[in-house]
């Protein structure tokens, strides 16, 4: 019951985005993909979410051949950097979307969906805002709607792309603690992409430091910090410490 990523390679037209990436994460782990822009971390996340396809390699999760499943059958809750909320739907409709598009035989009743939406709104502390439109929310609120929408489908794993990238420092710190608490409560395997090492080390159980389409070092925040394996890692950690 763990996530096993093996030798994932992906080439875009002119440059390789991923050069054989492998890592293993136990069920329920909170993994950060940390690296400078262009290191391939978002591409890796999108491959896990089924939004991009790898040229080589395999991914197994929960005994599932993960890459053979199309995006819509993976039940991977994906939270986009810019949230990608459906702008013409209310908050409640956004959250209900994943349930309402299920085939009729698996679809909860209208009443059950409404109840689930209420629960999720409470979970992300947005009670009473179900009738608003995304454009009427603050950045932090949109972020939480996006998370609630991803959680509504009872995801097998959570994939977060720079979840706090578009927020100001104060909201970012608040949401960080809140997200960690939520993770403890739900126990979902969560992969998140960030270029902010403070964020990665504060949140994650395991950190993968990426550079030029490869993982330079993978381990607990303590290990990575105390014993950088490569020169790149040491310099990368240094550069932010200044």
């Amino acid at each position: 019951m763990s996530l096993v990523v093996e030798s994932i390679a992906k080439r875009f037209e002119r440059f390789p985005a991923l050069n054989g990436v492998s890592f293993t994460a136990p069920q329920g782990a909170f993994v950060a993909l940390l690296g400078p822009s262009g290191s391939g971390k978002t591409t890796l996340l999108r491959i896990l979410g089924g939004l991009e396809f790898s040229d080589e390699g395999s991914v197994h999760f929960d005994d599932l051949n993960w890459l053979s499943l199309p995006a819509r059958e993976r039940r991977a809750g994906f939270v986009f950097q810019n949230y990608a909320l459906f702008r013409h739907m209310t908050v409640a409709q956004n959250i209900a979307f994943g349930l309402s598009v299920r085939p009729r035989r698996n679809r909860p009743t209208r009443h059950a969906i409404a109840k689930r939406v209420e629960e999720l709104l409470a979970l992300v502390q947005l009670d009473g805002l179900g009738k608003r439109y995304p454009s009427q929310l603050s950045g932090g609120q949109r972020q939480r709607v996006a998370l609630a929408r991803a959680l509504a489908i009872e995801p097998r794993m959570l994939l977060l792309d720079e979840p706090f990238g578009a927020l100001d420092a104060k909201v970012r710190k608040e949401l960080r603690g809140w997200l960690r608490a939520l993770h403890e409560r739900l126990g979902l395997t969560t992969i998140f992409v960030t270029h902010d090492q403070e964020e990665a080390f504060a949140l994650a159980d395991l950190v993968a430091i990426m550079n030029k389409g490869k993982i330079e070092q993978y381990g607990t925040p303590e290990d990575v910090r105390s014993a950088p394996k490569t020169r790149f890692v040491a310099e990368f950690l240094d550069s932010a410490a200044v």
């Binding site: 979410g49 089924g50 939004l51 995006a71 819509r72 059958e73 993976r74 039940r75 991977a76 809750g77 994906f78 986009f80 810019n82 990608a84 909320l85 459906f86 702008r87 979307f97 994943g98 598009v101 299920r102 929408r149 991803a150 509504a152 489908i153």
Partner: peptide
């Protein structure tokens, strides 16, 4: 394309 990608990751078919 993000909203379409979000819809796909939430389980929607192409037509939906």
């Amino acid at each position: 394309r993000e909203e379409e990608e979000a819809a796909a990751s939430l389980g929607a078919s192409g037509l939906q």
